[in-house]
Design a binder for these strands. Structure first.
Lengths: 192, 192, 192, 192
DNA sequence: CTATAAACGAGACGGTACGTCACGTCTTGGG
DNA sequence: CCCAAGACGTGACGTACCGTCTCGTTTATAG
């Protein structure tokens, strides 16, 4: 029977919020646990008690934030190309804001350092996007809009990867127009 | 007129070599200047004298390494799809070795932290690849293998981005087959 | 009229016993409340509820232990020198055991830090010894064995102090023979 | 051939001076390495590089201070009792100042915790006093002022121990008069 | 026979200090 | 002027304890 004081939800929130704000101010590499604790008004041990590393805190901070995993399902108006464009345009807008780009850079750095964390970040951040796209593609395929032999996994992965690559490159962040072109490029050959 | 002792080439080499080996052993984040100096048998000052930051050393270490920027030009047998596949298959093989993946992860982490460095890395590492692909595509276009309105920049960027995305994701590193499929996917709609 | 649960005697005992054993294992400085609580199987609050500081717990642990304040009265065979020697020999034996020395070192450290505690320790630990010696000396004086102008306080304090000094010094712990010599030294000039 | 930067004498001095002042302000137990470093304007590592523990720093701080080991030799006017009294009176005055008492309490606490340190403190602090006293006693003995069988070691140790005991007890710090009485007490039986 | 109130074991909390590591700079002595 | 060595002030690391504060749970008295 577990006794003892319960985990403080307010501390948990304060830590994640402090992490998010510091991430935008100083970036992942210069982010320190000391800073997070100080800004959150929390003892360092309270962070170490519940998270194994800076990367874990950052991951939770990003994923806890409603914005990032962007749970919006793809629209289904019947026109696959338009629906994909609508959705990707919105996603590009989100990830090219300072907040969005900052979180992506932070999560990438975090994942670079830690395979376990990289897996978790892929599963919770990238995979849901790919899944949503693939599901919508599958519907289109069953409706005969896409060829039966189109590699839907590959299309979804390429769409997400190509845009993230431009965000990570930093000098040519993707635009909504880029999103449109990209959809055209990869769909052209897949359409029936 | 410069007097005094000349810069030691052997120290420079030792530093870059030590950096490369440590990068594979401990990764970018846990790499330290102290370690590099110790392994290279070099004073720390000698590192700080010639490089501004850990990221710069890592960038030089990676780019100095013949393997990574992979200076091989694309073949030109006349068949654009086959040539692209040949080249990309080789590149995928290179970047999915432990050394290749390690360096890419390190460079990504380094670039996440530093916009200036990110630009340099893009210019010296990614851009040459995109350029080579785009040049070959252009030739194919002028030969009438590709449609006149195909967005060659976009194709090149997508090919590179989609594969790097899979390397960074770590759980599904790209295979030579993936490279083939990817070329098919993006070329299908661009071919005349 | 107080209601509610009574103080747990078993917890009190467990705390003092845990304190004694830990004191011998790690010494006063490395002794922690957390350790005591863990070994005693007790919540930390139960310690803080009843004791104000580590020093207080240690003092109670030492004084609760029958051994230390050694309540044995001095014998009175009529021969002051022999009686003193008998008693001091026993005391030296007690305080040079590992347990005895450990407690004295702990109490000394505790008293060094805290004037209030130092007073209490003196009153409950040293003073009773001096008092017993002085009372026996007084009897001897009234019997004419000691000169009327002998400074009995001073003699008692010197006997106790000289032996404790050797215990604290650690490299030359006093022997029963030392006790004999000491009695001879200070009594020789005081005897009638 | 040892190269590299030399140890900073100014840092060493600043550390010992900071330690002395903090010792008087907060006492041994509440003294922290962080505090010492901050007040001395020094990095913590500079302390840990040269001293193994808080106790070592305190010992050096005390012994480096000219006051404490009080290198004054005993006078030799020919009258052993008067010479001893003169010297002990001065010593009592020194060790009953706030500074003197503070250092003694600190050194006692330090020695309680660490046998090695206790030995060093005895050797460098107490032993020199006992030695000086014993040497003077020996001279007196050879001049026939003291009995040939007087235990000079024991006398010296008793004088030092009895006075330090009163300092440690805190409630009855020794006076110059106490010093006089003590000399009388232990010499009376030893004089020829 | 219940309330209710205090003490209990447990353990999370905001903090302070620990001793270590790495930073980037400075000093030393030697090419 | 460069170099290897290495001490320096700074600051973050992750851990250990501090003394306080909830949490149920247990044990006594009071109604």
């Amino acid at each position: 029977m577990p006794s003892g004081r319960k985990r403080s939800e307010s501390s948990r929130q304060a830590i994640l919020e402090a992490t998010r704000s510091l991430l935008l101010e100083v970036g992942y590499e210069r982010l320190t646990i000391d800073q997070i604790a100080a800004r959150a008004g929390v003892g360092k041990q309270t962070i170490y008690r519940w998270w194994a590393s800076k990367g874990e805190v950052v991951a939770d901070a990003a994923l806890d934030d409603g914005v990032t995993p962007h749970p919006v399902a793809l629209p289904d108006t019947g026109a696959i190309r338009a629906d994909l464009q609508t959705w990707l345009r919105q996603w590009v807008t989100d990830i090219t804001t300072p907040e969005g780009t900052g979180l992506i850079l932070a999560l990438t750095a975090a994942g670079s350092d830690n395979k376990t964390l990289a897996d978790r970040l892929y599963t919770q951040f990238s995979a849901p996007h790919e899944d949503r796209i693939r599901d919508r593609l599958r519907r289109a395929q069953s409706e005969g809009q896409l060829r039966a032999d189109a590699d839907l996994e590959s299309i979804a992965s390429t769409l997400v990867g190509a845009l993230l690559y431009r965000v990570l490159g930093r000098n040519r962040p993707p635009t909504t127009q880029d999103a449109d072109h990209l959809v055209e490029l990869v769909l052209r050959g897949a359409e029936a």
